[in-house]
Computed example of a mutant assay.
Amino acid sequence: MPIDRDKALNADPSVREIRWTTRDVLLYHLSLGAGADAATDPELHLTYERNLAVLPTFAVVAGSGISAGEGIVPGFDMPGIDIDLRAVLHAGQGLRIHRPLPASGTATLRSRVAEVWDKGKAALIVLEAAATGPGDEPLWTMTTRIWVRGEGGFSNDPGPEENWTAPDRPADTVLTTTTTPQQALWYRLNGDLNPLHADPAFARSAGFDRPILHGLASYGLVGKALVDGVLDGDVTRLTGLAVRFAGPLVPGESIVTSVWHDGTAEDGTERYVLHAACPERDGAPVLTHATATVRS
């Protein structure tokens, strides 16, 4: 049986040690366009190792970059999950930051299958990875949503309803991010060497006119835009970002992110709702179901 839900949910977490250096962080920031206007604003807090700040979204690639050696995103190897990787789509990403990330460091990453939902013609697998630093201090918790075509029919539980609409009022802030034609070539050096993001022939075989940008690159670009445009450049204020990947972005296109303030939580954090779209394709959605939490 391709998916055994009970086995997947009851399996022990996988545990591995990860490490990253300032060079990994610098490359990540450059791959998101940091320092693009170096003549007027080199963004030294993101592009220079002295007093280097770390964008919270770096957590999604920590341990996968140049310090880890040559590689690609690891295969899907978890108990109870036996699927064809060609049927897999990265459906969503979530991140909670428990403390500001150091510019270099090590962590223990514990990964598990948090949920498996039967969507009829597909399965939705939710992975959770929790990183702790020295002394078992929590650093971040990450969730990854994986949509697997053709793998439904293993249970009668489709999971909770997931309807979502943007607020019915003008956005409080609108942020525009431009990408460059070589953006995906930069971003893949963070660890995901999938040829879909580099090889035109491979991209055409997958049904795209040209290589597309990584979903996690769009995620990072929106996170950086939020830090720059709403949080006055203070990376430590962004404590959470969750999105669904709604459509591809081609390197060279833009992302327009609408931002709505959505109240204050009991712990004092501010909540924002986001919607990211591509203006070059008549506002086609790129990221939906998006929320951010921000320290005041």
Rank of each mutant, 00 (worst) to 15 (best):
V222M: 13
D199H: 08
T165H: 14
R244W: 01
V259N: 03
P181E: 03
G247V: 00
R188N: 00
A206N: 14
P181N: 04
A184G: 03
D228C: 01
R169C: 00
N194S: 06
G233Q: 08
F245E: 07
T177K: 14
P248W: 08
I212S: 02
S258E: 15
L185D: 07
A206D: 08
L221I: 08
V259R: 07
L241Y: 01
D228L: 09
P195C: 05
G220I: 12
R271P: 11
P211K: 00
A265I: 07
G207N: 03
G223N: 11
D267L: 13
N163H: 14
R244V: 04
T236F: 04
E266M: 12
T177G: 06
T239V: 14
D209A: 15
N163K: 14
E253N: 15
A198W: 06
D234E: 07
P211G: 01
L213T: 05
E270N: 14
T236A: 13
T176C: 09
D209H: 13
S254K: 13
G233L: 08
Q182W: 11
V222F: 02
S254E: 10
N190D: 10
L193N: 14
F245V: 03
D168M: 10
Y272H: 15
D262H: 13
L221C: 11
T239Q: 09
G268L: 04
K224G: 03
K224Y: 06
L216E: 09
E253R: 12
T257L: 07
R204W: 05
D232T: 09
W164N: 04
L238V: 05
T177Q: 15
P195N: 04
G215Y: 04
R244E: 03
V250E: 11
Y219G: 03
R204D: 01
G191V: 00
G207S: 04
T178C: 09
P167M: 12
W164S: 03
L189R: 13
D168K: 14
P211N: 00
N194E: 09
